[in-house]
Simulated assay, not measured.
Amino acid sequence: MTVDALPMFPLGSVLLPGELLPLQVFEPRYLEMVEDLTSSPDLRRFGVVLITRGHEVGGGDERADIGTVARIVDYERVQGGRLLLGCVGEGRIRVRRWLPDNPYPRADVEPWPDEGSDFGSDSIDEVGALVDELGGLLIRSAAVRGIPVPGFPKLDELPGEMGDRVYALAATLPLVAVDRLRLLSAPGPCERLMVLAEALGDVIAAVRFRLSE
């Protein structure tokens, strides 16, 4: 992917590379965007960035400058003229410049692959221990509330490079949008592991607080 004008879909959530993204499209400008993108198999990609202030509908929002390319893998027109999309996150991008929202949001973007950084087994072990601790707390919480708890994968059981593994693990965890954006904005795997450890610490503290009430 080279620097180019890319259709953009600002959302109230953060899409991580490798993550699945279901979308329901109903706003006219985004319906037009999808119609343009699905006119050819080679055009089925758009950028997703977090709305940092404002709303998804109507424009006038403030947007993050780090995002992810989403590829449309499935789409269906449903009642009321809405479109249901199935998308998957691909590479990370940086927004160089926002273009006029005419007829829909677009931006000049550049790819942002992981920057080389070393990571040690200590960081991997720390994240693994925190995930195990969170899982145990959520089992206790679920028992009180009578709901099932999904299991979390192990970093060393996930495919791909370490940077991709951290994304894949993070996608399964109950992280807020700000922490997901921090993960996406980390230069490389080492920094991403540190951000994930810090975010897990915050989630664990919140779950412990709820259990103590």
Rank of each mutant, 00 (worst) to 15 (best):
G59V: 08
P174F: 08
Q79T: 14
L138P: 03
V3F: 05
L175S: 02
E76D: 15
L6R: 11
G80S: 10
G81F: 09
E27Y: 06
G81Q: 07
L20H: 09
L130R: 14
P103T: 14
A143R: 13
D101P: 15
D42P: 00
L16S: 05
G89I: 04
R165E: 02
E56C: 12
P28M: 07
R29L: 08
R145G: 02
E27R: 05
E32Y: 01
L43E: 02
V73Y: 07
E133P: 01
R210V: 13
L211N: 09
L158G: 05
L184T: 06
P187A: 06
D179E: 09
T2W: 07
L169E: 00
M1L: 13
V14R: 00
S117H: 10
L31N: 08
G54L: 12
P174W: 05
V95Y: 02
S212N: 13
V207I: 14
S121A: 14
Y75P: 00
L50Q: 07
E32D: 14
P105F: 09
P17F: 02
A142C: 11
V49F: 07
I93L: 14
E27P: 10
F9W: 08
R210T: 15
D122C: 02
G12W: 01
V203A: 06
R82N: 15
I139W: 02
G47V: 12
I66N: 01
P7F: 09
V48H: 04
P153Q: 11
I66R: 03
D42A: 10
R182V: 00
A5P: 01
E76F: 12
P22W: 08
M33P: 14
Y104P: 12
A168N: 03
Q24M: 14
R82Y: 15
V95W: 03
G67C: 04
R53T: 09
G120S: 14
D132A: 14
E19C: 10
P174A: 12
G12N: 12
P41H: 00
G160S: 04
V178S: 07
G91V: 08
P159V: 00
L83K: 02
R44K: 13
T2P: 08
E213D: 10
V25P: 06
Y104F: 15
P150A: 14
E19L: 04
R63P: 04
G91C: 10
V144R: 09
P159Q: 01
D4W: 07
Q79Y: 12
V25W: 03
V149N: 05
Q24S: 15
L15S: 01
R44L: 04
V88Q: 10
M194F: 00
V131E: 03
R77I: 11
I139L: 13
I139F: 05
V149M: 12
T52M: 08
G60F: 05
R180M: 00
A199S: 12
L158A: 05
E198H: 07
W98P: 01
G89H: 05
D156L: 10
L193V: 11
E157Q: 09
R210C: 11
G12A: 09
V127T: 08
P111L: 15
K154F: 11
